[in-house]
């Protein structure tokens, strides 16, 4: 047997093995492979496989595949894509229990994307039930959404619904947290901005950032002193041309900063209250 013939036989054997393997790859095997990759957290490969299965699928297990694709997007922080795929999973499933689960998932995608109004629209589709756990979950989602929309009265109502009647102290604690509106609305960003417009730096001090407030006062005050000095030794026109642009730059920057600081401080307070509520619920 000459070497060329041997080579041909070898190539033919390799080709046959590969073609057999390709033939053997069924949709079910691809799905199993995708599931395995999902479990191993190889999400990129798993997504590719699920999409391949979806492409060649004859309409079986569509809800499962869509939910897996959505989960991959969800885990990786692509909430819009995840919501879109949960929506498709919702539409393709016939199981009522799964439909409810997909609604919750879609709502959570919107909530994590800070689209609370969209999440509320989804949650409105949830059916009524007497199941306590289900109702608690539903109330929790509604409460978090209303919190995000700054509708604290509605949020309070839903948070209180989660606490059972045999825990009146916890109910009281939550009601007390909501009663302290100061924690949720202050420092007021508008007030901080107006204060800094009237007296540069005062808005920052009102928001609790004394260092920034003093910095703003000294900086803008320095430009005022410069303008007065130049008016005295030169002309008002010179002073205006020299100091006014700088003054305006830091004056405007100052009151915008005051607003930002107030928003930041207020959000810290809100987050603290929110965490406290979650802690009470978790108990």
């Amino acid at each position: 047997m000459n070497s060329t013939r041997k080579l041909y036989i070898l190539l033919w054997t390799i080709y046959s093995i590969f073609s057999l393997q390709v033939y053997a790859q069924t949709l079910q095997e691809s799905l199993t492979f995708a599931d395995k990759q999902f479990e191993l957290k190889n999400y990129r490969l798993a997504l590719k496989e699920y999409q391949r299965v979806l492409f060649f699928s004859t309409g079986e297990n569509l809800d499962y595949i869509y939910s897996k694709i959505a989960s991959i997007y969800f885990i990786n922080g692509y909430y819009s894509e995840a919501a879109y795929n949960f929506e498709r999973a919702y539409k393709t499933t016939g199981n009522e229990r799964l439909k409810i689960e997909f609604i919750f998932k879609k709502a959570s995608c919107y909530m994590l994307d800070k689209k609370f109004r969209m999440a509320l629209f989804e949650l409105m589709n949830l059916p009524d039930s007497t199941d306590t756990q289900y109702n608690n979950r539903k109330n929790f989602y509604f409460a978090v959404c209303h919190w995000g929309l700054e509708e604290f009265e509605k949020s309070e109502k839903y948070f209180l619904n989660i606490i059972p009647d045999n825990r009146p102290k916890d109910k009281e604690k939550i009601a007390l947290l909501f009663a302290k509106k100061r924690n949720l609305y202050r420092p007021n960003p508008k007030t901080a901005k107006i204060m800094s417009m009237i007296l540069p730096g005062s808005g920052q001090i009102y928001s609790g950032d004394i260092k920034n407030g003093l910095n703003s006062m000294i900086l803008t005050g320095g430009f005022v002193v410069l303008a007065v000095y130049m008016t005295e030794y030169y002309t008002f026109f010179d002073a205006f041309l020299t100091a006014a642009p700088w003054f305006m730059r830091y004056y405007q920057g100052g009151y915008q900063k005051a607003k930002q600081i107030a928003v930041h401080k207020r959000d810290i307070r809100r987050n603290k209250t929110y965490k406290e509520i979650l802690r009470i619920i978790q108990q």
Binding site: S108, M111, L112, N136, R137, F140, H264, L278, I281, Q282
Partner: peptide, 16 residues
């Protein structure tokens, strides 16, 4: 487990 998962999922939603 789902309820606990939800609590965990949204605990840092308003984190600053």
């Amino acid at each position: 487990a789902q309820t606990s998962e939800d609590l965990r999922l949204f605990s840092d939603l308003y984190q600053v």
